[in-house]
């Protein structure tokens, strides 16, 4: 796999605030990197530095083999970028805007026509092509922004919250588009939708207060969750307290969380004391006790839980990050 994005020890401060603090990562062709983190973590700032909009205070960035600080034009030519909030020239029609993008990107005329048709078709823009962008709905604006980022078929895609404001159908459409393109490109998307990470990302980085706090495949990250290897049993017709007592007694179970989800129906989550599987033990016990079981299974772990446990409380601690000066 060839590395298309390489970031080394990137830092950026705004006055006393350190927005990005020594971030390093690589993204190879074929990878879709999910860039996660709470509000104000530094995701957008990092993306702005990679795309050459902001100058870093320290660190190196290379995109498609071009140093962004030395040859920004070549790097920018290789990138398709959807900035945060998808800013667009509101006084242009969607069609005129996309033509403007292919012209400034120097796409040859015949190729530009082909790519234009492709983008219009894939992002469902036919009906709004002659409408001025100011009058488009939020979701359509986002789609025009995506079309703009994809129209020159770039090798590197940087998308800052690409599905924000899209309806569920379009979210699905955009995710399958990303999956389809994934094999030939290096893609970085930032998102607050953790299901999106499972849907499209081959790897995820969680950043908090400008620092990388986790980096791995969505599976690896989810495995850090306390829900990893937990067993879920939903039982009908047994009192909550009795269930907790009976299940808590099983060897290897450290904790039982019970949750009444209906009249007479209780969902129990059994956490393992050492992270190893409990399934066999619990299954034996459940069978022998003759309960009516609605649901039984093992949890792989929840990304949301990991995200929360890694980043929680950090916005309040922000003051500490401010430099002493």
């Amino acid at each position: 796999m060839s590395t298309l994005i390489e970031i080394d020890n990137l830092s950026k401060r705004f006055g006393a605030l350190i927005a990005v603090d020594g971030v390093s990562f690589k993204v190879a062709r074929g990878e879709v990197l999910g860039f996660l983190g709470p509000n104000g973590a530094g995701k957008t700032t990092t993306m702005r530095m990679v795309t050459g909009f902001l100058k870093p205070d320290a660190g190196r960035i290379s995109v498609s083999g071009h140093d962004v600080l030395e040859d920004d034009i070549a790097a920018k030519a290789a990138i398709g970028y959807l900035p945060e909030g998808a800013p667009l020239y509101g006084d242009m029609t969607a069609a005129a805007f996309l033509h403007f993008i292919t012209e400034t990107r120097g796409v040859a005329r015949a190729r530009a026509r082909e790519r234009f048709d492709w983008a219009v078709e894939r992002l469902g823009l036919q009906s709004v092509l002659q409408q001025s962008i100011d009058t488009l709905s939020k979701g359509y604006k986002r789609r025009v922004g995506l079309a703009q980022a994809l129209i020159h078929d770039p090798e590197v895609l940087i998308l800052d919250e690409p599905t924000d404001g899209l309806d569920p159908n379009q979210k699905h459409e955009v995710r399958s588009l990303i999956n389809e393109m994934a094999s030939e490109k290096a893609i970085v998307i930032s998102t607050h939708l953790l299901e999106e990470v499972d849907a499209v990302c081959s790897r995820a980085i969680i950043i908090s207060q400008g620092r990388i706090v986790a980096d791995g495949t969505p599976m690896e990250l989810a495995a850090r969750s306390r829900f990893h290897n937990a067993v879920k049993v939903t039982v009908r017709g047994v009192a909550e307290a009795d269930l907790a007592k009976a299940l808590g007694g099983i060897a290897g179970v450290s904790e039982v969380a019970t949750d009444a989800i209906g009249t007479d129906v209780v969902r129990c989550t059994l956490f393992s004391s050492n992270g190893t599987g409990l399934l066999a033990e619990v299954s034996r016990h459940v069978q022998s006790s003759n309960w009516t079981v609605d649901e039984f299974g093992v949890e792989t772990g929840r990304l949301e839980d990991v995200f929360r446990s890694i980043t929680i409380g950090e916005p309040e601690k922000k003051g500490q990050k401010e430099a002493a000066s």
């Binding site: 050459g52 070549a74 920018k76 990138i79 970028y81 800013p87 400034t104």
Partner: peptide
């Protein structure tokens, strides 16, 4: 931001 991230 859009303009300054085009190869211009």
């Amino acid at each position: 931001e859009l303009l300054m991230t085009l190869p211009v």
